[in-house]
Amino acid sequence: MDISLLLTSTLTLAGGIPLTLLLTFASLLAGLVLAVPLAFMRASSCKWLSLPVLAYTYVLRGTPLLVQLFIIYYGLGQISAIRSSVLWVLLRDPFWCCLLAFSLNGAAYTTEIFRGGIQAVSNGMIEAAQAVGMSPLQIKRRIIFPIAFRSVLPSYANEVISLVKATSLASTVTLLEITGLSRKLVSETFAPYEIFIAAGVLYLGLTFLLTGFFHLLETRLNGAPRAEARPHRVDLQQVAHE
């Protein structure tokens, strides 16, 4: 193994980190925004709300992400109605196709994770909120979601980490994020061993940082009432409420 090639290619591939992170966090955010209301619908006792969401999560969790990405990237372009619509400005761009696929797919998994957390919130917490006169929306926002979020944080962290790795699929539709750059570099140098190891090291580094972040978030949210933790704790709670 050529160590110096490994090091130089690590530096080159690091140029793909911003795109990998952008794909990860943008689809994470979009997925979260979609997943929170969907999770409440999915957890609802009303069939008209929960069944459509179940259908959605069932289909998106039951098919490979790569297939979903290909359907969006290659498939949607076949439909002339879409080609002639405003949407085409976005959908002909591989970046937006990736973002769409990752967000929809991530939302499906996140919905099911949150649904579990929402349904696990004990009835007593909700009754206590009703008893002071809170509205259903206030109860969801102030009581159910924060409690559910804390309880599913470890599973949600897993979902975030698999999303980081899933962004490597963007390389199949020409995007030059970490994996895309690696493939390009390999085709130039014919040194797949060093270069893909370098790519792996970068992903490992990202996962390491994210795991650390979620670990920190978990301990903070679980409320250590130490004086020095107070100012930060407030900030993080606000994050959790959103």
């Binding site: 007593g124 917490m125 009754e127 206590a128 008893a131 009581i143 409690i147």
Partner: peptide, 13 residues
């Protein structure tokens, strides 16, 4: 009307 429950039902977070 205030209510106090058997199992307290404090909000844990």
């Amino acid at each position: 009307v205030g209510m106090v429950f058997q199992s307290f039902n404090l909000w844990p977070h």
